[in-house]
Each structure stands twice: as structure tokens, then as C-alpha cells.
């Protein structure tokens, strides 16, 4: 019955909202500090905060500071449930130059984000789009053909087509290799557990292979956001179930 109630449109719902009392909220904070940001996920509606949190999860030290903190776009969806709103806010941030978007990910449609202040590159700093063509590079930025070749060698640009390039991050290959290995590891862990489901808290406590350097929390948000698992809230925390 309670499930049915939750499907009512907004017009029927009473305007009163649940406001947790002071004691309750402190309890919440305690549990948050203990078990990671599980309790926090209900409160997050702001995409920027979600991005900051995800950035803090990225282990820069493990990559010897060769990579800026890379966030995958769909990881935000595990925090912000309204995807349309999240997309809109990310587009606004991109237009204002706060973040950069790159075509980087396991699949063709996937996008990743980097905060602009972490990227020290002149064209990446000025371009808000994810792809550039030759006209733009030659006329707006004043590059010669040789310089473009050098940029491709430095992997600031990657080839998309004749006369067209994707923006890229140097050393993105290292990241992607680690990332794909880690995602596989997480999915195998869930697949091997009973009924192909596992509590999120239990999963965080498991031993994590050392080669997948990105950390388990980073990958949990990745598989939730990419809709590879279903996220079911239970009385003992969130349950991740592998989607068929």
C-alpha cells in the first residue's frame, strides 16, 4: 500500500514536508561519517556539490599527479536522481567555463568532466565544446598544421575524422585502463554474491584488488549511474542488484 501511495502525483500530496528534528540530524551526521556518504545522498540536490564529492573520491596521488581528477558524467546521477536537472546544471557549468567536458568513457556516448582550474592548457581552457574542427583551430586559435600535429602527439587532441578532433586529456589512456579494470572487478563482485545482489555497505568493506587504483566508492557510483545495477533502498542500507 505504501508503495502505491508513493506513485501519487504531486497534486494529491499534502504540502507538509518531513523535517528531521535536531537530534535526528546529528544521528544522521554520525552515521554519515561512519558509513560514507550514504545518508547524505538523500539531501543532495545540487549538482555542484555532487561533483565536488566525486572529485574528492578521485585518488590523484595514485596516478603520481599526472592526471586531473576525472569525473564521469553519469556518476552524478547516482547522487542527483533528477537526471534532467543534473544535465541542465552541468551544461550551465560548462557554458560558464567552470568544468570541461570530454568524450571519454567505456562507450561511445559517455562523457567525462574535469574542473577547469585543474587543466593547464590554452585551447582546452577556451573551448567549451567537446570537439574542434580545422577552421576553428586555424582561424580562432592561430595554429599551423605542424602545431596541430604536435598537439595530437601531446594527446591534447585526438583524431575524430579528417579535419576534426576530439578534445582530450594527456594520459587519459592510463585512466581508462584502470577504470575499465575496476568496473569489471565491481561487476564481478556483485555477480558472484548470492542472488547477484549485495548491500552497498558490505561491498565497501570488501577487499579491493590493488591494480584497480580508483577506489571502490568511485566505481560504485559509476555502476549505479550507468544503470548497470538497480539501487534498492532497504532498512539496512542500499542494496545493489545486478540488472539482467
Amino acid at each position: 500500500m505504501s508503495r502505491k501511495r508513493s506513485l501519487l502525483p504531486d497534486l494529491y500530496k499534502s504540502k507538509r514536508k518531513y523535517v528531521p528534528s535536531a537530534s535526528c540530524s546529528t544521528e544522521n551526521n554520525v552515521s554519515t561519517s561512519q558509513g560514507g556518504p550514504t545518508g547524505l545522498s538523500d539531501l543532495l540536490t545540487d549538482t555542484r556539490t555532487a561533483l565536488m564529492l566525486l572529485r574528492s573520491m578521485f585518488p590523484e596521488g595514485k596516478f603520481e599527479n599526472r592526471l586531473p581528477p576525472i569525473i564521469l558524467k553519469h556518476q552524478v546521477y547516482s547522487y542527483v536522481k533528477n537526471r534532467t536537472l543534473a544535465d541542465k546544471q552541468m551544461n550551465d557549468m560548462r557554458a560558464s567555463g567552470e568544468i570541461k567536458m570530454f568524450k571519454l568513457g567505456a562507450e561511445a556516448g559517455e562523457r567525462s568532466l574535469v574542473f577547469t582550474n585543474k587543466v593547464n592548457s590554452c585551447i582546452v581552457g577556451q573551448c567549451t565544446d567537446i570537439s574542434l574542427d580545422k577552421d576553428r583551430l586555424v582561424k580562432d586559435f592561430g595554429f599551423t598544421d605542424l602545431e596541430i600535429t604536435q598537439l595530437v602527439h601531446a594527446s591534447v587532441l585526438t583524431v575524430r575524422d579528417v579535419g576534426s578532433w576530439w578534445l582530450s586529456i594527456p594520459n587519459a589512456g592510463i585512466f581508462l585502463k584502470t577504470f575499465i579494470r575496476g568496473r569489471k572487478a565491481v561487476l564481478t563482485m556483485i555477480r558472484k554474491s548470492k542472488y547477484r545482489e549485495v548491500l552497498k555497505n558490505d561491498l565497501q568493506k570488501r577487499r579491493w584488488p590493488r591494480l584497480a587504483r580508483l577506489g571502490i566508492l568511485y566505481h560504485i557510483h559509476d555502476v549505479i549511474g550507468a544503470d548497470l545495477v538497480d539501487c534498492i533502498s532497504t532498512t539496512s542500507g542500499e542494496l545493489l542488484r545486478l540488472r539482467e
Binding site: 568524450k103 565544446d129 567537446i130 570537439s131 574542427d133 575524430r160 575524422d161 579535419g163 576534426s164
Partner: peptide
């Protein structure tokens, strides 16, 4: 019209 700015595509 953003990233599909390439004319041939």
C-alpha cells in the same frame, strides 16, 4: 548543433 559541428557528419 554543438559537438556535431563537423560539416560532413
Amino acid at each position: 548543433g554543438e559537438s556535431a559541428s563537423h560539416s560532413k557528419c
